[in-house]
Design a binder for these strands. Structure first.
Lengths: 195, 195
DNA sequence: ATTATACTGTAGCAAGCGATAAAAAAAGGG
DNA sequence: CCCTTTTTTTATCGCTTGCTACAGTATAAT
């Protein structure tokens, strides 16, 4: 099987390098020549392996959700709504401060405002942020059903508030905030917790 | 006075048009040809009146701070720290939802992640966000000195938390949140208010 | 060994980018 | 009216962008 010349680079390693670049500079701020430099391959190899810039970004986005942003779905498995939320903040701060990859959250840094040709990036990232909010809302609804949270709590509002702070933390980190500062913000944010 | 051919466009109107474009598409997502189209002038006129793209962006940024973002400094004049904060949220939501100009806050949308050539935009916007945080911190410190806020309150932490929510609101609006939703988020955020 | 297959390297495409040179046009001062 | 000054117009400049054709090279199957 796999006859023909084998590639002499690792696809996942190259994808990680591309992810880091998109993460740091956004979709539009990342040029293909910068990508090939960082990935250690040349353009035809990139196109053969990933399609084009858009397809490469989508694959990097998938990888982002499965690897560095997996803290989100992991946090949802905590036993109580409060601990879910605390773990969410902790995980977000850990990711955002991790020196092994760029600052902030790719869903925010990747492209909040884009040129007309990259409008799909803005929309796609918006959908993913909305999906995260929806997942958290479901988890809170479950907590209400389990009598973990009071049924007077509005799960949708609470989830929207929490993710708003999360996106805000990403912006703060892009501005150079320290781990201690982000921690303090998350602790203050938790003072709004119901009951 | 003013001899020579007069310009046949209004500088401030053109600047407003440029501001709207930068606001919507970010610095890098806005091309000079798109700018000249929207401003109704051609390139040499733009260069004669504003310098270059960077200088134009800086002037648009100044205008942004003086016109649509003036709600921030206005809010600081409210009599109590709590009312300052409430007015801040109200003003931010009003601006972010205003159909007369693009969604979100230019300090966030303008360029959170940029290509290497536009790194100064990222830094500049970060400095302005930090300046906003510092202004709010000073106001809270004043409130503590006036016995309006308890002296057990940490003005720096509180200011950082509030602006974190503000930047989060900008991200949420970019994702299509409604005015009612943003209002609910700000009300929940105020539940963390000290005392 | 030969052949088919798939990857790599060089070189270059059209299009758009930010920015400008040179000439024509419109005003005021003499 | 002419001359100076400033603007607008037209036509580009050199460079980078995302992308690809072509030739060369390395492997597996036959």
């Amino acid at each position: 099987m796999a006859r023909g010349r084998p590639r002499n680079f690792d696809v996942d390693e190259a994808l990680d390098a591309a992810l880091a670049l998109f993460w740091r500079h956004g979709y539009e701020g990342t040029s293909l020549s910068a990508l090939t430099d960082v990935m250690g391959i040349n353009m035809p190899s990139l196109y053969a392996a990933f399609g084009n810039k858009e397809a490469l970004f989508r694959k990097a986005l998938d990888r982002y959700l499965q690897q560095p942003a997996s803290y989100f779905t992991t946090a949802l498995e905590e036993p109580t709504a409060r601990r879910v939320t605390e773990k969410l903040f902790q995980g977000a701060i850990d990711m955002v401060m991790n020196p092994r990859h760029p600052d902030g959250c790719l869903l925010v840094q990747g492209g909040l405002a884009t040129g007309p040709l990259a409008d799909w990036v803005r929309k796609e990232l918006g959908l993913l942020r909305t999906a995260a909010e929806a997942a958290l809302r479901s988890r809170y609804q479950q907590a209400i059903a389990e009598r973990d949270l009071s049924k007077r709590v509005d799960a949708a509002k609470l989830a929207r508030y929490i993710v708003t702070v999360l996106w805000g933390l990403s912006v703060q980190r892009a501005g150079g905030a320290t781990r201690a500062q982000l921690k303090e913000v998350s602790q203050l944010a938790m003072r709004a917790w119901p009951d």
